[in-house]
């Protein structure tokens, strides 16, 4: 009796295992047969994939451009430099002393003192007004202390407080922070960021609908197969599986192609960009999509494509009924 039950349970376990293996096999079959089906209609498939790839690449290019510009403004943010212009009655030695004093301030990272003589020499050398400046009786340039605040002062309020503190010092005539244009640039970048999101969402919709429509046509072409499968007892899950895999492949291959397109475009602009940055003495390095961004791109592209396919299948499969 017990032995019989044992063999029975073993049998049930084996059957379950076989069912599971058959299920996996069915998935594997769906995965590869859908790829085979795509390759058997190369023109149609590649046109769809190309349309998808261009849509994805468009969003991706916009994104990578913004990322690269952000890289620039990121560097700017780190240099919220202030210039303290000292009053005339403070001579260079006193200015130097003040600078040393300020260097010990809690919120100050670095100090650079530019004495009026030094400033005059640089100005003569660089401005081209050398001769004219020689005609001046006295040096009209002020002594300047350049202050680099600590990085902790990223927020505007703390920075303003530090500015106010410097402004109250008797030796300081006025304080100048070249923040305004940085702020404007950052505001523009916020808009650009939002723009990337919007364009991304829009093109994401495009990918979803294009794939959905492709799957709808495919479903229409294979109506007989769907109908017959239904009649021999196929569940919707079974019937839609190969179509979902087709959607997956469309998205996946399109995502990969989009990555190729983006990379090739970056390669094309890399040299001129580096020449430009060289002109500005900048060490700007063009950023490409990172590996995790590449993986995300693939996942998004195939995910959206599967979503579009699934939505279409969900509604259309119920409608395919025998005539």
């Amino acid at each position: 009796m017990t032995m019989k039950r044992q063999t029975h349970s073993k049998h049930v376990g084996q059957r379950l295992l076989e069912k599971f293996q058959a299920y996996l096999l069915n998935h594997a079959h769906g995965l590869f047969s859908s790829l085979g089906r795509l390759s058997r209609a190369p023109v149609t498939s590649s046109m769809t994939i190309l349309v998808l790839a261009v849509a994805i690449a468009l969003a991706g290019c916009f994104y990578i451009v913004v990322v690269n510009i952000q890289q620039l403004t990121g560097n700017l943010q780190a240099s919220n430099q202030m210039s303290l212009f000292l009053i005339d009655s403070v001579n260079e030695a006193a200015g130097q002393k003040l600078a040393e004093q300020l260097a010990r301030h809690d919120h100050v990272e670095n100090i650079k003192f530019i004495g009026k003589t030094q400033a005059m020499d640089e100005f003569k050398a660089n401005s081209g007004f050398g001769e004219a400046l020689n005609a001046l009786e006295s040096n009209p340039l002020p002594n300047v202390i350049q202050v680099l605040p600590k990085n902790v002062l990223d927020d505007r309020v703390a920075l303003d407080a530090l500015m106010a503190e410097f402004r109250q010092m008797p030796q300081v005539e006025f304080v100048q922070v070249d923040m305004q244009w940085v702020e404007r640039l950052q505001a523009i970048m916020r808009i650009a960021n939002r723009g990337v999101t919007l364009v991304g969402v829009l093109l994401g919709f495009a990918v979803t609908f294009i794939t959905g429509n492709t799957i709808r046509l495919e479903l229409h072409n294979r109506q007989d197969e769907v109908f017959i499968s239904k009649l021999v007892g196929a569940t919707h899950a079974f019937i839609q599986r190969p179509f979902l895999y087709t959607g997956f492949w469309l998205g996946f291959i399109a995502g990969f192609s989009a990555w190729l397109i983006i990379t090739i475009m970056l390669l094309i602009v890399e040299t001129p960009v580096e020449q430009l940055s060289g002109l500005y003495n900048s060490s700007f390095q063009l950023l490409y999509l990172s590996f995790s961004e590449f993986v995300l791109l693939l996942m998004l592209a195939s995910g959206l494509a599967v979503l579009g396919s699934w939505a279409v299948l969900h509604y259309q499969l119920r409608q395919i009924k025998p005539q």
Binding site: K19, A22, L25, I228, S229, V232, G233, A234, F238
Partner: peptide
């Protein structure tokens, strides 16, 4: 084989 595949029979079956 279609009805069997649909019902999840094993390859040998």
């Amino acid at each position: 084989a279609l009805p069997l595949i649909v019902s999840g029979y094993s390859h040998q079956d």
